[in-house]
């Protein structure tokens, strides 16, 4: 089994997850509560990776990260190494690719919070920030956990974007799904099977956790 690829995938997923939590919460909050009339455009952009073929997304990101693009040049001047075909590039691509998987469950949970509770909070003297921290977040924990878990799992299993942006450099950009592809190409079916089985078991475990959390019988009972 390609342990190097597995460790790399987990590292990638963990970093992406942490970043998505940090930017996903404010984006989801804004999407839920903003009354801006053009909000639907932002919603569409956030959801784009859901419908776009990974190769299309990967292609444009490759262009954006290349040494000839402003972003690529800026990055090279800043860090001294290029963005395309590196782990850093992979992180950025994965964040964009997994964004809807973090934002949508969180936004759905925010939207489920009874507006009456938010109004009660403000008549009791709380600012919007305090209401968000004390009321909205605690009542949305299940959605936040679902968003984190889904984006972790989704990053772990992505293939097309990684191949386009990262290539297949061992220890740099070879993730577990690419390793499986490599093993199959080399007719090492036994190895591929072992790695695939590991991913399958992991994904099943993750989804079970998500569904168990989103069921939340206790929270529903205490609503009434």
């Amino acid at each position: 089994m390609d342990w190097q690829a597995i460790v790399l995938s987990i590292r990638l997923a963990a970093i992406v997850c942490a970043v998505l939590l940090a930017i996903g919460l404010p984006i989801a909050y804004w999407l839920t509560f903003s009354r801006w009339r053009w909000k639907f455009l932002v919603e569409a952009v956030v959801a784009l990776p859901l419908v776009l073929p990974p190769t299309v997304l990967g292609f444009y990101m490759l262009l954006a990260m290349g040494s000839r693009s402003p972003l690529g040049r800026l990055w090279e001047r800043w860090t001294g190494h290029p963005l395309a075909f590196t782990f850093d590039g992979l992180v950025i691509a994965s964040i964009l690719y997994s964004l809807p998987f973090a934002v949508q469950p969180i936004a759905a949970a925010f939207a489920q919070v009874d507006r009456g509770l938010l109004e009660a909070s403000s008549t009791l003297g709380s600012s919007r920030w305090r209401t968000a921290v004390r009321i909205v977040l605690p009542l949305s924990v299940h959605g936040i956990v679902a968003g984190v878990v889904l984006s972790f799992a989704h990053t772990l299993g992505e293939f097309g974007v990684v191949l386009m942006v990262g290539g297949n450099l061992p220890g740099q950009t070879r993730t577990v799904s690419i390793a499986i592809y490599d093993q199959v190409q080399a007719f090492r079916y036994g190895e591929a099977n072992a790695t695939a089985l590991l991913l399958l078991a992991f994904s099943f475990g993750v989804l079970s956790i998500v569904y168990a959390l989103t069921r939340r019988p206790r929270a529903i009972a205490s609503r009434t």
């Binding site: 009874d114 009456g116 509770l117 009660a120 009321i135 605690p138 009542l139 929270a219 205490s222 609503r223």
Partner: peptide, 8 residues
């Protein structure tokens, strides 16, 4: 009318 006590 629905009291809006914080359930958590």
């Amino acid at each position: 009318q629905d009291l809006a006590l914080f359930p958590h």
